[in-house]
Amino acid sequence: MLLPQYPDSPTPPPAYRHAPADPAPIRRAGPSISVSTGAVVALITGGVVLTALLAAVAVSAISVAVAAVVLRSLLREHHRR
């Protein structure tokens, strides 16, 4: 907590006041990364293939769930007769 300085204060003012200097700008010299066109094409192709596989798994799971519901319904009707 900073206390206000009054002219009749018994404490003398500080002899030296610190003036912060402007910091030097930081220059980062990182490795330059060059991405080839082939790598970009491979990445996009891999993404498309993985998306297609995920969609195929989702459609298969939905079909199995629908088939299970239909079979359960048919078996329930068969047992009631």
Rank of each mutant, 00 (worst) to 15 (best):
L2W: 05
L2Y: 11
L3E: 15
L3H: 09
P4G: 10
P4F: 10
Y6E: 09
P7V: 07
S9Q: 10
S9I: 05
T11R: 14
P12L: 06
P12C: 07
P14C: 01
A15P: 11
A15R: 09
Y16A: 12
R17A: 14
R17I: 01
H18W: 15
H18Y: 14
A19T: 07
P20L: 02
P20M: 02
A21M: 04
D22Y: 08
D22N: 05
P23A: 01
P23H: 00
P23W: 01
A24R: 06
P25H: 08
P25V: 12
I26T: 13
I26E: 03
R27S: 15
R28I: 04
P31C: 09
S32P: 01
I33E: 08
S34F: 14
V35Y: 08
S36R: 04
S36P: 08
S36K: 08
T37M: 12
T37K: 08
T37W: 13
G38C: 04
G38F: 07
A39K: 00
A39W: 03
V40F: 01
V40H: 01
A42V: 06
A42W: 02
L43A: 13
I44A: 06
I44T: 03
T45M: 05
G46R: 02
G46S: 13
V48L: 13
V48F: 10
L50K: 10
L50S: 06
A52R: 09
A52P: 01
A55V: 04
A56D: 05
V57T: 14
A58L: 09
V59F: 06
S60I: 12
I62R: 00
I62W: 03
I62C: 02
I62A: 09
V64Y: 12
A65Q: 12
A65M: 06
A67N: 05
A68Q: 14
V69Q: 11
V69D: 09
V70G: 03
L71E: 10
L71A: 15
R72W: 08
R72T: 02
L74K: 14
R76W: 06
R76P: 02
E77N: 14
H78W: 11
H78P: 06
H79C: 04
H79T: 03
